[in-house]
Design a protein around this nucleic acid. Structure first.
Lengths: 347, 347
DNA sequence: TTGTACGCGTTATCAC
DNA sequence: GTGATAACGCGTACAA
């Protein structure tokens, strides 16, 4: 509760001397320094960071705004950010955008509580982003395309990733491949579907079924999608799920139906969440460079904070196929399977 | 960049009229209200939250300080907090304590940047906590015992949890049970070891081996621990790992050694991380009530913020045994196994 | 109802 | 080296 003024009075010096002593910016005599320090100690003084920020305009704080602090990506993503931020003496505070328009995320965007912001939250309206950016807050938006040069956006090449996965299945000899969608109004989903279709048509194939099954990006949805597929008999030889959580639900459903993976059917997911490596069989999937996105976002933000004009307004990172045990060459014998599995472990 | 002063000038009214209009606390004429709003719009005005906080002393912000924003517990923990916080119109910002004494976590503790703090970070020194608490910042510390009534601490009953797990193994007929420690200087580990030993002696047993194997709480450590155990021949019939990550590493090592779980050996973990349910076989483990800890922490903090004197200075939450597929009655036939597995699924 | 004046706690710019 | 004093942007008595 004690303020600088109190310390000054107690030490018998002026306010500015206290400030100078504590900040260390300006030299003071050793004697007065001791007097000041003794007083701060005795009064149990601690500086008020809010007041300091108000004055010095440069708080070196980055706001990381996410939909859900508990999401599966968050963890890797923030690691990429933290690393770069710490190296440059910036602090990162994370807050969720949940809870509508009065959430902390919005407050950080609107009320000049941070030097810059990284937004990985579909809950935040684009207008709000543009407003804040226009007002001078450096912003990097993740996983959304913004056709505006006031802010830079970083996305993942979902189309390329889906193409990769589909091509892998095709090269294993699969010709009947089903796509389980996430959510039809999701851009990610549309792009992944696109990559899927592009790969198919590049190899002269057509999708296994016109039935548009949506798994809502949830494990339960993936489970139900497989049940639906089974119900209409005649299974495809491979299934491409729009994300890993659905794929894992699908794996569970297939096990319940006594359909063997990868022997009877091959499965591919998307995202490479931590779980993907632990399910049985381990899931072949498409890895998004989440950590790299975080690091890139922070780097871009840094140069923006330095006042450098943005080199680009859009970055697109490409995905990588992670081969594990859930795919198999069609009609392959055990030896082939073993070969596929071991080659997967290498990557 | 525009301030209230600018808006006042542009609207041709006084500073306080602008303030009154925007805050809505004091009624103004509709005409002037429109003038003000038009001006804020035109100048693209946004309030400076920092300045507002400085003035109004009550920012309704809770700082959540954790070692690692990417840890396995974090996600469930923050969900418990957020729910309660949002219901009470408090905001939560999360920051990590990584990066030594100049980290954002410390700044929040020292510089009056939050109304209260929940600290789940072993990196934060106890002195610092007591200092801040003594200065009037309401603090709830998680997973550490603090013998001081300036702050309240919430812990999990590791001893009871370990007792539960060990007793389960004993009741399945196991008499030779090994304990794989995490880290010897960890309080959690010591408590779990204690519970293990208590259960053993309660049933007149002694620990399988005096060999103190430490797995360092990591998956790799669990893997190596099993390898060590195998190297000295004569395996125990059950192994209790001090956490799930080690247990999962152990499962991997056992598979590599062609030792069947649970047929040849039973395995129990601790924590019930998300992965535990997905490994093969699914891991029987002890669940810590992480979500509940978060919710409790926030509730305690709330009543502290209301000025209520703390009912207790220490809360201890008990653990729950989660039975899955990694344990088996000793000498049991298939039918017994099936019964064990199905009863596990019920819990 | 509207305007004036001051305080919040700190930092920064000057004098001395 | 040290000390007045003026900002920073907003809230809010109090007076008009």
């Amino acid at each position: 509760m004690a303020t600088m003024k109190d310390v000054a009075k107690a030490a018998g010096v002026s306010l500015s001397t206290v400030s100078n002593t504590l900040s260390g910016n300006i030299h003071v005599t050793e004697a007065t320094k001791q007097r000041v320090l003794e007083a701060t100690e005795r009064l149990n003084y601690q500086k008020n960071g809010i007041a300091a920020d108000l004055k010095s305009k440069t708080m070196r704080t980055i706001a990381l705004i996410v939909d859900d602090l508990a999401g599966p990506f968050f963890s890797q993503f923030i690691q990429g950010i933290q690393r770069v931020a710490l190296d440059n003496r910036y602090d990162v505070v994370a807050c969720s955008a949940l809870g509508r328009k009065d959430s902390m995320g919005v407050k950080f965007l609107q009320e000049r509580r941070a030097s810059g912001a990284i937004v990985f939250a579909s809950d935040i309206a684009e207008d709000l982003l543009l407003d804040s950016a226009g007002r001078g807050l450096p912003i990097v938006a993740i996983d959304r395309v913004v056709a505006d040069d006031r802010l830079v956006s970083i996305t993942v090449d979902n189309t390329q990733g889906a193409y990769l996965a589909t091509e892998h299945l095709i090269q294993l000899g699969h010709t009947s491949i089903a796509y389980i969608a996430g959510s039809h109004d999701s851009l990610d989903d549309r792009q992944r579907l696109n990559g899927f279709l592009q790969a198919l048509s590049a190899y002269g194939l057509s999708p296994y079924s016109d039935l548009r099954i949506s798994g809502n990006f949830t494990e339960e949805g993936g489970y139900r999608a497989i049940k639906t597929l089974v119900a209409q008999k005649e299974l495809p030889s491979a299934v491409f799920f729009a994300n890993d959580e659905m794929a894992i639900g699908g794996l569970r459903a297939l096990a319940a139906e006594h359909i063997l993976v990868p022997d009877d059917i091959s499965v591919v997911g998307f995202d490479d969440i931590v779980l993907a490596r632990y399910v049985h069989p381990a899931l072949t999937t498409v890895r998004q460079p989440i950590y790299e996105m975080g690091a890139l976002a922070m780097n871009v933000l840094l140069s923006s904070l330095m006042g450098a004009p943005p080199k680009t307004t859009t970055y697109t990172l490409s995905c990588e196929l992670i081969q594990r045990g859930s795919c198999r060459r069609i009609g392959s014998k055990e030896s082939d399977l073993a070969r596929d599995a071991s080659s997967g472990r290498r990557s």
